[in-house]
Simulated assay, not measured.
Amino acid sequence: MRRVEATFLEDIYGDGDAVPRDPSDAPFVALLLEGTLREDVPGPQGGAQLFALTFAGETLSPLSPRRSGGTLTAIDQSRLLTCDRIGFDRLAGAIPRLRVNLLGLLQDQLAEAHCWQTLLGRKTAMERVASMLAWFHARQGRPEEMYLPVGRAELGQMTGLTLETVSRQMRALERQGVIALSLPTRVRVLDETGLKHLTGDAPLRRPLHS
Rank of each mutant, 00 (worst) to 15 (best):
E58F: 02
V19N: 11
S61W: 03
V41M: 03
G57H: 04
P23G: 10
Q45P: 00
F55C: 04
P62L: 06
R38N: 01
P23Q: 12
P27T: 11
G47Y: 07
L33H: 10
P23W: 10
L33W: 02
T36G: 02
L32D: 09
L60Y: 03
P44D: 15
F51W: 13
S64F: 01
A52F: 00
A48M: 15
V29S: 09
A48C: 01
A48I: 03
L50K: 06
E58M: 06
V29L: 14
A56F: 00
L33Y: 01
T59L: 04
F28H: 10
V19R: 09
D25K: 14
D25T: 13
P20L: 10
P42W: 10
T36L: 11
A26D: 07
P20W: 07
P27Q: 14
G46H: 07
R21S: 08
L53M: 11
S24T: 11
F51I: 00
L60E: 05
V41C: 05
L63P: 02
V29N: 14
S24M: 08
A18V: 11
S64K: 13
A56V: 01
P23K: 13
E34N: 08
F55R: 06
Q49D: 01
A18L: 15
P62H: 09
L37N: 07
P62S: 06
P62Y: 01
V41I: 15
E34V: 04
T36E: 12
A56G: 09
P23I: 09
A52P: 00
Q49R: 15
G43Y: 04
G43M: 05
D40R: 14
D22E: 13
A56E: 02
F55D: 03
R38I: 02
L37V: 07
L37M: 08
A48S: 13
L53H: 09
R66H: 06
P27C: 11
L33C: 03
A18D: 15
F51T: 02
P65S: 11
S61A: 15
R21H: 08
A56T: 00
A30Q: 12
D40E: 15
F51H: 14
R67D: 14
R67K: 14
P65G: 10
A30V: 04
P20Q: 11
D40C: 02
D40A: 13
T59I: 07
L60P: 02
Q45V: 04
D40H: 10
T54K: 06
E34D: 13
A26K: 07
G46W: 05
L50M: 06
L31M: 07
V41P: 02
T59H: 05
T59P: 00
V41F: 02
D22T: 04
A30H: 03
Q45K: 14
A56I: 04
F55N: 03
G43T: 06
Q49M: 12
D25L: 15
P42G: 12
